[in-house]
Structure formats: structure tokens, C-alpha cells
Amino acid sequence: MSTFGKIIFWVITLFVLFIIVAPLAWIYLTAFKAPNDIFTTDVKKLVFFKFTSENFQRLFREFPFWPNFVNTIIISAASTVVVLVISALAAYSFARWNTGRGHLLFTTISTRMFPGVVAAIPFFVLYRNLGLLDTRFGLTLLHIYFNTSFATFLLYGFFKEIPEELEQAAMIDGYSRVDIFRKIVMPLVRPGLAVTAVFCLVWSWNEFLFSFLFTRVTARPVTVLISSFWGSIEVQYGPMAAGAAIVILPTLVIAWFMQRYIIRGLTFGAVKG
């Protein structure tokens, strides 16, 4: 690469990096700032300021951060587990037996092709009649509904990668379909399951629209709480940043540890060993 090329490369890299890192940095810096430092016009104070944990204290003391955070954990974990079970079986069936000759798979995926809001109104009416509004169960169900299609689609590709002959070999070796699924298919599709689980978990963790529309108090996830800091009268930047700082932490950690897996998972078909 020429010197000019290198310069261009680094300029673009730094620019992209800035776009990704700047909001995160802003959140974490703001979370530890006193109100005065947040609103100051002093550029130096953007980075150099007096550390305070006041925002976090306020978050736990004045707002239902903790119960909402637990809601998020329960809803996203429960929906992810259920989604994985359903879509692993569905995807295996689509991949191995071509169940529904592609139409069923397409129908499953098509639930993701319209904007979520379109589904919101009928779902709302249904939920009101069933008494599922503002329940963790109800929101979990919605997350399962939306994630299953995507997870099935993703896992379908992973199952497709497993050669059918491998399963035939196991049949000849004397194993039943169930045993083959457990002993041959599952271990081989594990990276795919991990990637799918992460995607479902992150989506559910960050989900806002349905959480906002379908919950009020008891089942409210933390994303909705954070948005409530943006009131009509004032914006409470401190607690908002503090809440966000905590909420995005697990996602950041997962992304850090799983990045190798995720990249490999997404290019699974492209680079066959």
C-alpha cells in the first residue's frame, strides 16, 4: 500500500471508530458527571471533570431501575431459550426434510418483513382481551414471536451446512433419529446456536417498540425506563446515561467475548474447512 493509501486507510478507520466509540464514550462520561458538568460549555470539562456516583445513586433510589432491569433479564433470557428450542427443531426440519417445500420457511421468515408497528394494533387488541398487557409473560411471548422467524432462518443455514451423509452414516451405525440429532447434529451446530442465541438475546434486550406499547408498570423493561427520562419538561441526562451505562454493559461484554464466534458463525458457509 502506498503512503497515501495508508493515510486514507487510517483516516477512514479512525472516522468509523469515532462514530462507533463517541456515543459510548459520551454515555460513560456523562454517567459519572454532576449536572453542572453535563451542561457546561467548557470543552475541557467534556473529559476532565469531578467523578461522582450521584447519578447511579439517584437511579436506584428515585426510579424503579432495579425491578425494570430484572424484567429485561427475565424477558430476554426466557424468550431466547424458548426461541432456540423452537427454531432449532423447525430449522432442522426445514433443512433436512424441506418441510413445506420452502413455503412454510418463507412464511416464517415473512413475519419479519413488515414493520413491527403494523402488527402492534391487532396484537394490542388481542392482548387487552386476553389480559396479557403489562405482563412479563405477554411481552416474552411477543419477543418469541418476532425472534423465532429470524432464529429459524439463521439456524436453517447452519443445519444446511451439515452433510446429510454424516447422518446417514450414523443411521447405518445403528442410531435413531433422536440420538443422531443429539449426538451428531447438535454438537456440530453448536457455534450456530451460540451465534443465534446472542442475536436473539441482544435483540430482545434492546427491544423498545413493543415494550413501550405493551407495558406500563409491572412488566416494564429497562429500555422503556431509560426513555422515560426524556420527559416533556426536562431531560434527565444524568440518570439516563447511568441507566444506559449499566444496560449496555452485558451486550458489550458478550460482543467482546463472542466476536470471534460471531464472525465465524456469520461466514460459516463461506469458508468451509
Binding site: P163, E165, L166, Q168, A169, A170, M171, I172, D173, G174, Y175, S176, I184, P187, L188
Partner: peptide, 20 residues
Amino acid sequence: LPPQERNVSMAFETYNLYPH
């Protein structure tokens, strides 16, 4: 009869070893 009930044994040209 499914393969499990035929009691045959087969070596594939493509090996088909269980990779894990």
C-alpha cells in the same frame, strides 16, 4: 426397512467421519 434395522455396515467414499 430403515438403515438401522438392516444391520449393515458401510465405509463411504467421502469418509463421513464425525468431525467433533
